[in-house]
Design a protein around this nucleic acid. Structure first.
Lengths: 156, 156
DNA sequence: TTATATTCTGTATGAATATACAATACTATA
DNA sequence: TATAGTATTGTATATTCATACAGAATATAA
């Protein structure tokens, strides 16, 4: 049953893109999006998504995703750089080699530095190749996992 | 009547220093601190303080102060730079001139850049003077207002 | 001071959100 | 397939939070 999973991402999008004051409002939007559920289910969804309710600094409260899910705009553009540039990632021991489109190595490496992934000790960029040195104790899997989290829609 | 004022700061401290799940819990702590009020009053206090309720990332929710009240440490130090450096601010059309203590122009300008006030298009710093260029559509008043918000205890 | 306005609060209640429970749907395994 | 276990959901209800209203306290103006 993928129903809930799909619904969760729709809820997430709705919260990200709308000012939503309460669950009834969200229920309507969700219904328009083709998911008709009860308030109880929605309440559970929100808890699952760790959605919070915060002040608008003026007179009311609205739902907001947890910080982890709120990627800053500048961060987004770096993520775009990575998305646009990366062709492949391969590993050898605690080294990784990222192949990029020609001329993109620098922007990708800069982006990786800015994103400050905990697995990466440092990067060295040429024209279409980046050397990545993993931190002690970090594995290829750790880094790829981190990638999946921070840079949706990229796979090693 | 200073009662409410005092109570508000106590509430703030309690929220900052404890994990508080609901208003009843907070009522108790507040009572221990010598302020006995009803849930209704507390609810109003919380709204006034713009307190939010956010996920602990695990199984529950707790109260949290708004981000404005939780200025990051690094940001604080930039704010200190501004506080320490600025002597005066004057405007002419969409330009502002900030006079600083000698040698402080650079650190203040850097701080302003980091703080990323939406009214400022760019800055240019000498030794004791900073040119500030306002963004199209932004006024002197907008910037000063923004200052008051982000940098408490500074006036133009 | 007196009159008037404003702020603050509690009571009572309404609105919003969470959950116990039971039913159903799905998954995994033999 | 049959069975057992897990996940998802709605109903009904409990819990939590917000607010209309009225009265008391405080401030403001004359």
């Amino acid at each position: 049953m993928k129903e809930r999973h799909n619904r969760l991402s729709v809820v997430k999008e709705l919260i990200k893109n709308n000012r939503i004051d309460n669950q009834d409002m969200l229920l309507e939007l969700l219904s328009e999006a083709g998911y008709t559920v009860t308030q109880a289910t929605l309440s559970r969804d929100l808890k699952m998504l760790k959605v919070g309710k915060i002040s608008d600094g003026w007179s009311g409260y609205y739902y907001a995703l947890p910080e982890n899910d709120l990627i800053s705009e500048s961060e987004k553009s770096y993520i775009q750089d990575v998305r646009r540039g990366v062709l492949s990632i391969e590993f050898s021991q605690n080294f990784g080699v990222i192949k990029t489109r020609s001329g993109h190595a620098n922007s990708v490496a800069l982006a990786l530095d800015v994103l400050a992934l905990p697995e990466i000790l440092g990067t060295l960029a040429g024209d279409d190749t980046i050397f990545v040195i993993l931190r002690e104790g970090m594995s290829k899997e750790d880094l790829l996992e981190s990638f999946k989290l921070r840079i949706p829609e990229i796979e090693g």
